[in-house]
Amino acid sequence: MTQAMTQPATAEQDLAIEVKGMHKWYGDFHVLKDINLNVKRRERIIICGPSGCGKSTLIRCLNRLEVHQRGEIWIDGIELNDDLKHIEKIRRDIGMVFQQFNLFPHLTVMENCCLAPIWVLKKPRREAEETAMHYLERVKIPDQADKYPGQLSGGQQQRVAIARSLCMNPNIMLFDEPTSALDPEMIKEVLDVMVDLANEGMTMLCVTHEMGFAKTVADRVIFMDSGEIIEENDPESFFSNPQSDRTKLFLSQIL
């Protein structure tokens, strides 16, 4: 623990995320137990597990939407603690996509994408709009730029949410069940965007039940249950040769 205070930047340079012995409680309930996790740059990780296992809480701890109580989290060599400057830097560095999209309903798609670049990165509006347009094109909805989120379908909204995160030019993207609130025919259009993103080398942590997606893009699959990491492995071995009983049970239920 003490040696971690002087994190040597050189040795761990290729680590995007480093979580050491992290615990979290909700009141008396122990949600996350002794989490250790290293994520290399450009690594794509899928986190799965039964609902209530703490997988969402884990990734929400990584950008401090939830506060961990014990252990350490380092993002790109910066420790995540009470220091507001650290939190700000880390949040700029990490993009997040939510299950419920959480687009701002009072702003147009374009304004949604430009809000943070203008107010956080202090970009001129023109530049912010150009970047936004670039990413909207990448998620294939440039023609919806002037509409309001309420006028779009769920799949379109989620793609806007992805574009909105990308506009901050993040090094890491967190996905919290991005397709769970979508109708089946819309899941594919969102997954396609995510696959593109993965292929371009974005560091990604994705909580999802889309095992097909896990098989195609993941470098590593992590299985969590009752607040701890039970098993992690490359997708092939994970799916074909699960080690623990709980993993086997889980896989038999969802596949």
Binding site: N102, F104, L115
Partner: peptide, 23 residues
């Protein structure tokens, strides 16, 4: 205003004052 709005804005790096004012 649902809590998700605050979270999304925070995740984008906006500070509490700006979240309040803009979102």
């Amino acid at each position: 205003v649902s809590h998700g709005q605050t979270e999304a804005a925070a995740a984008l790096g906006l500070r509490p004052g700006k979240i309040l004012r803009l979102v």
